[in-house]
Design a binder for these strands. Structure first.
Length: 485
RNA sequence: GGCGCGUUCGUCUAGUGGCUUAGGACGCCGCCCUCUCAAGGCGGAGAUCACGGGUUCGACCCCCGUACGCGCUACCA
C-alpha cells in the first residue's frame, strides 16, 4: 500500500477513438489509484492541431463512462488543477518555457525546416546520430530579441547538458540508464505556440500533483528528456511505470488492419464491458493465483503494479470471447432481459412484441449456449418467428417415410394436453413412441426439425414448453404439409 | 545505423536457486453426461524455459555474450 494518496492520470490525445491499448493504460491507472485510495485524473493532450479529430474528446469521455472507469478529476468533470485540456493551458507552457530559457536550460531556435533537413541528411551521410547541432544556442540575447522583433518564427529547445548519465528507476523495468550525449535538444515549444508532449506532460504532471506516471512502453525512450526537465525546473520527479505493449498476432504493435482496436468496435460487436475490462486487465498482469474471472472491484482490490509483466502481450480475441460468455452467464435474469430487448430492437423482430416472461424463458434456455446476447436470436430464431425452412441434411437423416404417420399420432396426444407443461409433452411423446415400439429419438428429432427447422438447441421439451402447445401443433402441421419425401 | 526494452506450450501466463518428470487458462482433440447443440465433469496432445557460455553441489530462475522481436530516434503523441 502506498502511504500517501497517489494521483495518477490517463492522458490520451483526441485523435480518434479510445484504443484498447489506451483502455488498458487507463484501467491500470484506475486500478492503481483505487487500490491505493488515490485519484484518477483525465487530461486531454491536444497539442497537435493537425491530428485533432472533431468530437474525439466527447467520444473518449463517453467510452470511458460506458466502460465504467470513472475519473475523479479532469476534462468534463472539473477539479482544482484545471484546465485539464492542454490547449487551454498555452500561457502556462510559454511561461515555464521562458523560465527555462532564463535559466539557460532552454533556448530560442530560429532554424528553418530546410536547414534542419539538410543537417539531418548530412549527419545521415556521415553515419552520425541525427541531432540538432545547438546552432541557435550561441545567439546573443540581442540577436534573439532582434529576430523576435522581426517576427521570425521560432521554437524553444531543451538545452541538454552533455556528459551526464540519466537514471530512471522504473517500477516495472527496474533501473534503466541513458547517456545525455545521445539525447537531442528536443523542441519544447513549437512555432505555432503549442508545446510538444514532453514539455506539456512534465509541466502538467507537476502542476496536477501526479505522483505516478503509468504509461505505455513507447514512452520509455523519451523519459530521460522528462527527467531532465524535472531537474532543470527543480521539481520532484514522479514514480515511473512503463507498461508493456499490446500486440497484433504477428507481434507488431497493436494496430488497425489486423483487427479491431477501438473500444467502440467491441461494444458494437456486443462485447460486455465487464468482459473487455477483465480481458484487458489480464494482458500483462496476474495476481499470481489461478483466477481468471474478475469484476472491476475485485481487480481494484487485487491489483499490484509490481506484478505487471515486462513483455508485450498479443491481443487474442478467442479468450475475450470466452470471457464474454462467462460474464454473460453470471448476469441476472433482469440484466439479460434488458440486454436481449435492446438487441431485438436492432433486428427484424423489432416490431414484434414478446412478453418479459417469454423472453426470460428463452434466455434461460439459451444462455449456456451463447457467448453473446445477439447469438440468442441468431442461433434460435425459432423463438421469434416460425421456421422458414428445414435443414436439408437433417431432414434426410431424421425424416423417415413413417415419420408423418407417427407425427399425426403424436399430434392427437398433443391436442389433448391441457397446458404447455414440459412433462405433458414428454409423456405424450413417450407414449406415442411406445405405441410404435421404437426409441424416443425417432420422434424427438423430427419434432425438433418441425418446430425449429434446425438440429440443435435447448432440450426439445423446453422448446415446446416455451413456444407453447398451440404453436407446437401449428408448426408440426405446417411441417407435415411442407415436407414430402 | 544508434539508443532502449523484451524473449516459458499456438495465445495469455505461474515460476524470484533445490518443492518442477515446468503449473493454470483460452483454443484444439477424446471420453462421460445426453434427444441435438451447448454448459459441466474427466482426460490428452502441446514448452529441448530463444541460443551459447559461465557462477553454483544444483539453474527457467544469477552473470556475460549472441540471435531474434519490438519501441524510440519529428515543430506526433
Amino acid at each position: 500500500m502506498i502511504s500517501e494518496n497517489p494521483r495518477v492520470r490517463f492522458a490520451p490525445s483526441p485523435t480518434g477513438y479510445l484504443h484498447v491499448g489506451g483502455l488498458r493504460t487507463a484501467l491500470y491507472n484506475y486500478l492503481f489509484a483505487k487500490h491505493n485510495n488515490g485519484s484518477f485524473i483525465l487530461r486531454i493532450e491536444d497539442t497537435d492541431r493537425n491530428r485533432f479529430v472533431e468530437g474525439a474528446v466527447e467520444n473518449l469521455i463517453s467510452t470511458l463512462k460506458w466502460i465504467g472507469l470513472d475519473f475523479d478529476e479532469g476534462q468534463g468533470k472539473g477539479g482544482d488543477c484545471g484546465p485539464y485540456m492542454q490547449s487551454e493551458r498555452l500561457d502556462i507552457y510559454k511561461k515555464y518555457a521562458d523560465e527555462l530559457v532564463n535559466k539557460n536550460r532552454a533556448y530560442y531556435c530560429f532554424c528553418s525546416a530546410e536547414r534542419l533537413t539538410a543537417l539531418r541528411e548530412e549527419q545521415q551521410k556521415n553515419k552520425q546520430q541525427g541531432m540538432y547541432d545547438k546552432h541557435c544556442l550561441h545567439l546573443s540575447k540581442e540577436e534573439v530579441q532582434e529576430n523576435l522583433a522581426k517576427g521570425l518564427p521560432y521554437v524553444i529547445r531543451l538545452n541538454v547538458e552533455k556528459g551526464k548519465q540519466i537514471v530512471i528507476n522504473d517500477v516495472i523495468r527496474g533501473v534503466v540508464e541513458f547517456h545525455s550525449d545521445i539525447i537531442d535538444d528536443q523542441v519544447l515549444l513549437k512555432s505555432d505556440g503549442y508545446p510538444t508532449y514532453h514539455l506539456a506532460n512534465v509541466i502538467d504532471d507537476h502542476m496536477m500533483k501526479i505522483t505516478h506516471v503509468i504509461r505505455g512502453e513507447e514512452w520509455l525512450s523519451s523519459t530521460p528528456k522528462h527527467i531532465l526537465l524535472y531537474e532543470y525546473f527543480g521539481w520532484e520527479k514522479p514514480v515511473f511505470a512503463h507498461l508493456p505493449l499490446l500486440l497484433n498476432p504477428d507481434k507488431s504493435k497493436l494496430s488497425k488492419r489486423q483487427g479491431d482496436v477501438a473500444v467502440e468496435d467491441y461494444k458494437a460487436k456486443g462485447y460486455l464491458k465487464e468482459a473487455l475490462l477483465n480481458f484487458v486487465a489480464l494482458l500483462g498482469w496476474t495476481a499470481g493465483d489461478d483466477q481468471e474471472f474478475y469484476y472491476l472491484d475485485e481487480l481494484v482490490s487485487k491489483f499490484d503494479l509490481n506484478r505487471v509483466n515486462k513483455s508485450g502481450a498479443v491481443f487474442n480475441v478467442e479468450k475475450l470471447n470466452w470471457l464474454n460468455g462467462e460474464h454473460l452467464r453470471k448476469k441476472s435474469q433482469i440484466q439479460l432481459l434488458e440486454l436481449l430487448k435492446d438487441h431485438l430492437l436492432t433486428t427484424v423482430y423489432k416490431d414484434n412484441s414478446y412478453s418479459d416472461k417469454y423472453l426470460i424463458e428463452v434466455i434461460e434456455s439459451m444462455k449456456e449456449r451463447v457467448l453473446f446476447i445477439h447469438e440468442i436470436a441468431e442461433k434460435a430464431p425459432y423463438f421469434f418467428e416460425t421456421p422458414s425452412g428445414y435443414d436439408e441434411a437433417l431432414l434426410k437423416k431424421r425424416w423417415k417415410p413413417e415419420t408423418p404417420s407417427q407425427l399425426n399420432k403424436l399430434l392427437e396426444r398433443f391436442e389433448k394436453l391441457e397446458n404447455s407443461d414440459k412433462e405433458g409433452f414428454e409423456i405424450a411423446l413417450k407414449q406415442t413412441v411406445e405405441e410404435f415400439n421404437t426409441g424416443v429419438g425417432t420422434l424427438i428429432h423430427p419434432v425438433r426439425l418441425a418446430v425449429s427447422g434446425i438440429g440443435n438447441g435447448p432440450g426439445l421439451y423446453d422448446i415446446l414448453h416455451i413456444i407453447g402447445k398451440d404453436e407446437t401443433i401449428k408448426r408440426i402441421k405446417t411441417a407435415l404439409n411442407k415436407i414430402s419425401i
